[in-house]
Design a protein around this nucleic acid. Structure first.
Lengths: 339, 339
DNA sequence: AAACTGAACGCAAACGCTTGCGCAACAAGA
DNA sequence: TCTTGTTGCGCAAGCGTTTGCGTTCAGTTT
């Protein structure tokens, strides 16, 4: 049926152990025999059975990646770059898409990755219990979202600094009524929205602007949510002249809401996003750019390093640079007064 | 170290085989013993080793998914929906991201999925050689792109009909100079761009419009490519008054090029895309919608069916519906003549 | 009461690899 | 010549499951 290691061994006139050593580049086999075996294996189209190999060796050469929504740009991009790093190093990736609460719960209770992966990269923020479950796997862990967590190597960005640059930009343009569309905090302890909100409040305070709770709305990190949130903000008794959205998707939703209300951007309302989505440039959105692919690649590299040198201390938290990208959705507020 | 089936067996006072049967719902074990074993297993936190299980049974409960670019909206969306179907059925997914020619070549020569998956879903179009390699895996195959292929269940859309509805829409608005931004055909026999081009030519012919090669440009299925292509088209001696882009991403690039040239959409130039990208609505792009997530889910379901009933004949090709979505980037051409 | 069922369970043989150990064979040092 | 190393390779014992077959035993049929 399917060709096994003993088939190769027989065909090459050696033992199975020699085939195993030869094909995996171990020493203890002469160059000529190795060449022989390699040739025979190629000719027979032999591939080692991953199951048998990992059962015997304990190594799976597989990395688990858990992500909330593969379909969303941010996660897709991180996954893309991480996958490249993994596959270049000879690792396969097992993907778990945990968008709905049920699949998420099932994953963390059944833990299908147990004994199946050598390491795990999480693109979602586990709560304490989930964190513990992952640690119980006994493999290196990394994450590209949220703040530092025990047992994890997390590569992220400085949410405070990013938010500050965005909001300060609006302040410097002369805006005083600055709204914010935030991402839902959800059931998990999702630190990002919290950090960004705090930074937003701090900048307002430092500029001597009184915070108006009516200028905050939740956008659920989606386009539709952003649209709803912007609509809410516009319904305030004194609507904002500028809005900071915690993600580009929400900013895009906000832009759509503004268009529906026949308000001009940036003349009537300025908008700044967060992420530098691939289409942010297309629609001219001012935003704070973060190296999304870079974070995925870096996290993957750090994971691989831990696998290569098991003794080494893993960095707890690394921060990647952010930068404000000025485009066409921000401008000074329209001068008020008698027209 | 890690708890094995014999640990559970010992703790429950039965044999390993009984544990195996009990946990997998096989018959031949009494209800009380089964309950006992289930409880003990849960308490010990036992999970069967996937390697050992698949080595012994030959089933991997894993599906391979190969995709050119996980980061792109189309593929991410298909993957997302397919993954949900697979995981709901108890299958894990192994992801292979084959964007670059090297990784692609490596994948098809080494075929790391051999003996690792029970079925394979391809979101890229394999050439004849690659197709043969996949068939040699001896597992059910499905694809969500391109035309029918021997050995594959492919679920797609009617590219001709989709293109016709888009181009006819432009013709009906009164356009006569209708450009097209196509996706590169690339090295593989990628039938989609060819089918769409043919439909484009046919509609022009049926409307009595002479085809002008200067109104065709390649956009590589990317935003940047679309922008370049549009710029090319605008450089023609008689530029188009309307453009059909073979994907929304390219259409978005075209919109950006038009904005850079200070041309109004749809007043100066109409644009219609293809796909109904999640952000098409945000920017008001007229486009032909295809059920992207639906195709992923359907392909996944068809694959699972083949696994459940190995004897059954698999459908060779199923087509999902498309529909033209009118938004704000198309309008009648600006009346010409003395202004 | 004997013979026959079927259900519930254990035994042991795979499944296809990896790896510690042992054993030649040969080279180099004493 | 005899040790001592070194290198190249085979043996065989796992790794943790699944599964065909055999055994036991309670319950049914003659």
């Amino acid at each position: 049926m399917t060709v096994s290691i003993t088939d190769v061994a027989r065909a090459a006139g050696v033992s199975a152990s020699t085939v195993s050593r030869a094909l995996r580049g171990r020493q203890g086999v002469s160059d000529e025999v190795r060449a022989q075996i390699t040739a025979v294996a190629a000719q027979l189209g032999y591939t080692a059975s991953q199951s048998a190999s990992s059962l015997a060796s304990g190594r799976t050469y597989t990395i688990g990646v858990v992500v909330p929504y593969v379909g969303r740009w941010f996660f897709g991009t991180v996954l893309d770059s991480a996958e490249h790093v993994f596959s270049a190093a000879g690792y396969d990736v097992l993907l778990y898409n945990l968008g709905s609460p049920e699949t998420r719960k099932r994953f963390f209770t059944k833990l299908p990755v147990r004994k199946r992966v050598d390491a795990l990269l999480s693109l979602l923020i586990p709560d304490d219990e989930e964190s513990a479950a992952l640690r119980s796997l006994g493999v290196p862990l990394a994450s590209t979202v949220g703040g530092a967590r025990p047992g994890f190597t997390v590569v992220g960005i400085d949410d405070r600094a990013g938010t500050e640059s965005a909001v300060r930009h609006l302040v410097n343009l002369g805006h005083r009524r600055i709204g914010m569309i935030s991402g839902s905090s959800g059931p998990q302890h999702w630190t990002t929205p919290i950090a960004r909100r705090q930074a937003y409040l701090d900048v307002l305070a430092e500029a001597g602007i009184e915070h108006d709770p009516a200028l905050e709305a939740d956008g659920d990190y989606t386009v539709e949510g952003g649209e709803r949130a912007m609509t809410e903000l516009l319904a305030a008794s004194r609507p904002p002249t500028a809005v900071f959205a915690q993600s580009d998707e929400m900013a895009m939703g906000a832009l759509r809401a503004l268009r529906r209300h026949r308000l001009k951007v940036p003349d009537d309302v300025s908008v700044v996003g967060f992420d530098d989505h691939e289409l942010a440039d297309v629609i001219g959105l001012t935003t704070v750019a973060q190296p999304v692919a870079g974070q995925g690649a870096e996290a993957a590299r750090l994971l691989l390093r831990q696998l290569d040198e098991p003794g080494a201390e893993a960095p707890g938290h690394v921060q990647m640079p952010i930068r404000l990208v000025l485009r066409e959705t921000t401008a000074p507020p329209r001068p008020r007064g008698p027209q």
